[in-house]
Amino acid sequence: MEGRGFGFPWTRFLLATRRALSRAADGMDAESLLLSLELASGSGQGLSPDRRASLLTSLTLVKRDYRFDRVLFWGRILGLVGDYYIAQGVSEDQLAPRKTLYSLNCMEWSLLPPATEEMETQTSVVKGRFMGDPSHEYEHTELQKVNEGEKVFEEEVVVQIKEETRLVSVIDQIDKAVAIIPRGALFKTPFGPISVNRTFEGLSLSEAKKLSSYFHFREPVELKNKTLLEKAELDPSLDFMDSLEHDIPKGSWSVQMERGNALVVLRSLLWPGLTFYHAPRTKNYGYIYVGTGEKNLDLPFML
């Protein structure tokens, strides 16, 4: 049969293209770090050449040692003494919880424990800037009710919170709140796992300006609460995440077209420092966080 000609060389070619395609998309991939930094530079957030070079080297090694499918450069949290450089390892399933690593010098990476809700409540009392020292302990005095016999009285207890815990919790909060991805970049397979959409060719210009074409990169929360009428227009294989347009408060995103519509930049106002960029009609998109790791609680006053 003449079909035989399709065999071996074709599959090899195909595998190569598949590999290339899966690299191109999402996050700040280690391989596409330089392009991404260039695209996100409009916000003034960059890396110095030596940091860049060391990241490129060390993330490759991290990928090998931790056996990640991909490693993304997540961003940088500015501390008073030192900065935390954050990277995330991604497994096959795109929505699965990611492993987070941090480094102070961009070469030695340490794995962070997964974030728990307990951590979040614990660290919610800490305000102010990060120190840049993972072993730094914040002291927090809180009143605790102590039962002694029949009497109930309040006692001041000093709680010590490690900065590392706070770091984990803040990264998790940022990821849950403002990690975003363009619509169509991921799709849900009938079997459940969510994978990179290889046919994603970028948003069109008119779509790129709308908040509704971006999704929160997390398990949907709002989607369940939607009415049937609202769900009617959704495509189950694409619209399986929450879109940005219903974020509270309204206007917690700034959408800008830069370089004369050649680049769309979304900046989170709730977590200032998070920049998402996407060049319409290309596969280039991703986000990077460079900031103090503090939530902007003043947002309603500022709009």
Partner: peptide, 14 residues
């Protein structure tokens, strides 16, 4: 059907 490639599903994009 014309060419009868092996593992047609893999190269359907091409």
């Amino acid at each position: 059907l014309d060419k009868r490639p092996e593992n047609a599903v893999d190269i359907i994009e091409n």
